[in-house]
Design a protein around this nucleic acid. Structure first.
Lengths: 208, 208, 208, 208
DNA sequence: AATGAATGAGCGTTCATTCAT
DNA sequence: CATGAATGAACGCTCATTCAT
């Protein structure tokens, strides 16, 4: 059984992604969630805090898998990076709606709580990449030491740009909007494309 | 002498980038532009059409340099791509505010005119890349034929993600907000980073 | 206890009659009704629909008394017409403000819903008169068969023109604005005047 | 050659009748009249005074024909009333648009100048009717002395109500909007209908 | 715990009119 | 004489939020 609170959260996520935070009214959210309009203030305090709650939920999820992967003892640095890319691709594909909101907020939001979430997340990723690159370079898994900021920009930038572009490509090639096979292939290509680039800038050679 | 119409356009560009289209009120624009609030309707018809006018202006500018480069007879395919990246980096750096708006609109706007501008622009770039890649492969400048959609996602995605991240890096490393030298270095690194990746995925070797 | 919704309706009726629909602002209505300005949209949807609601209420009332009179079994055709004129006079006197609005809307309004109300009402009256005239002619209550459109124009036209002229007459003869006795006499004269004309054009003779 | 001033006047008359005074903007008038928007203030002072000028023009016209008829020496009282009705019918038919405005203003306008025009006009008619009725009664042309206010209400009320109803009848009987023959017949019926009533309430018998 | 009526601020836009040229 | 850019006030309406129940 899904609670009213979750109903609101998921309805808001969908509508914020579709129309943007500002253009989505609390009335629409309450209608979509099948709850009374005043329940939003009641449960979350305000529309703004509802957005924060949404970020809190989704961002917490992504912190866990990073730690999980980093803790695995029997993987070398490239295997860890490769696994991170796999999980990242999967998450972006699954939570497209949330990552649409995230990008928008990154561009315009001035909400302090959300800025903190975003910075923490970004710094977490940067630290992790730095460690993997340093370790990998030291033990000669990697031959190069790329600029971490640039490497991250390529990884995340390519991912998001490709994600945003998918509907346009489907429209362009007249692919059915609900065609999941196409999505699958697209995200697989994307995954390989990113890995290919990272291998190059890290100076990693397979089967060595 | 700058006209009232341009005053409004530039004030709007600044505020739309800072707060987003929805959160920016016509009153704020008129205050920032030092004009009466009704001048917005007078010159542009509506707030929506003001945004369209802004897109029209900036997008028209970017179409010209593409044609210019493609028409140059004495450059090989890589030199053309390299030049495109140079110009692109320069534009993004100069018109940061506009490209912030562009990204936001790409994510949420439902305005038909703007969707058309964005699609036209994107298709223009894709067609150009396709032609350069095909030609370069034929005459053996390039050894590989990458997926154009993915190549474009990496080029534009890296560029925008890096652009968006700049203020955070400056903040992180306590660099003065107005420090232009840092920006210069940052965008130069970005430029080289992107070129390095493209050379790899195109299979281009220098000094051959 | 009178509800806020009714408060708005009656305040609007008064102001629309006094100044006309366009010249009456929602702010004035809310002030007159002692409610917040947003309650108009809340209860009625819009200023336009508030007017429609007003028409719905008043027009529904007038449909009932027609049916009531027509259904009376023990009255001849002239007695029915006579009774209709009595009720009509009474209504116009009581709801002067509404009939002022009705006339204005008849002249300029383009609102489809209201046009429909007005046409239905008018056709209802015309059908009724036609039936009474036909029946009365057949059973020799009436000696003439007048043009129904013209008969209706005289009945309603005289009524409204006289109603509109009343304030001017009171002003002209320096009668106190609130003097109800004068009104009573005026509407009684009007009632008899109209009946006298209708008897003539229907060829009805009393005491036959 | 028609002057700009007249162009504005006729354009305003048309639009005020179609949409009402308030709903007609000065921009629309200037567009319809093919003049610059500021010419309205320039020539007439304001939108309000433009309406006054319109009334001044049309009301002056109607005063002349009354005096003309009253001055005719060789007509008896009924012949004068009959002639007044003829001219009145003709004017209403010709200046339908203006009489639509007149009725609306009579219902809601608070403009002092216009109120004065309307009162003067009405009193002029009432005085004239009073004189004709008194004279006719004295010389036994008429057998009755009706209430002048009621007689006027029937004359003008029937006229206007019938005029306003014409479009609805044409629509109802699917008559072409531009069919002038139907109009002609309609106004002739109206003319005879009003005369028939007046003969009755004045106690006038023809060919006696 | 849950409702929905009610609030007040602010929104984008239109208006008649003015004024520098 | 005539223009049209520019003004400031007011418009109808929507918004997130509050509050009595």
């Amino acid at each position: 059984m899904i609670s009213k609170e979750e109903n609101i959260l998921f309805a808001a996520e969908k509508l914020f992604a579709e129309r943007g935070f500002e253009k989505t009214s609390t009335r629409e959210i309450s209608r979509e969630a099948n709850v009374n309009i005043s329940m939003i203030s009641y449960y979350f305090g305000s529309k703004e805090k509802l957005l924060e709650s949404l970020f809190e939920m989704r961002m917490a999820e992504s912190q866990t898998y990073i730690k999980e992967i980093m803790a695995k003892p029997d993987l070398n640095e490239w295997q860890k990076i490769s696994l991170i890319i796999d999980r990242y691709t999967e998450r972006v594909r699954t939570y497209k709606v949330f990552y649409t909101i995230l990008q928008t907020e990154q561009l315009t939001n001035k909400n302090e709580q959300i800025i903190r979430y975003l910075e923490n997340s970004k710094k977490g990723f940067l630290d992790m990449y730095q460690k993997l690159v340093d370790d990998g370079f030291q033990n000669k898994t990697f031959k190069k030491k790329p600029n971490i900021a640039m490497m991250h920009a390529t990884l995340s930038g390519t991912m998001f740009y490709a994600m945003n572009g998918l509907p346009m490509y489907k429209d362009y090639f007249s692919i059915n909007k609900e065609n999941i096979d196409y999505d699958q292939q697209y995200f697989q290509d994307l995954n390989l494309h990113i890995k290919e680039i990272l291998k190059h800038i890290l100076g990693y050679e397979e089967n060595k």
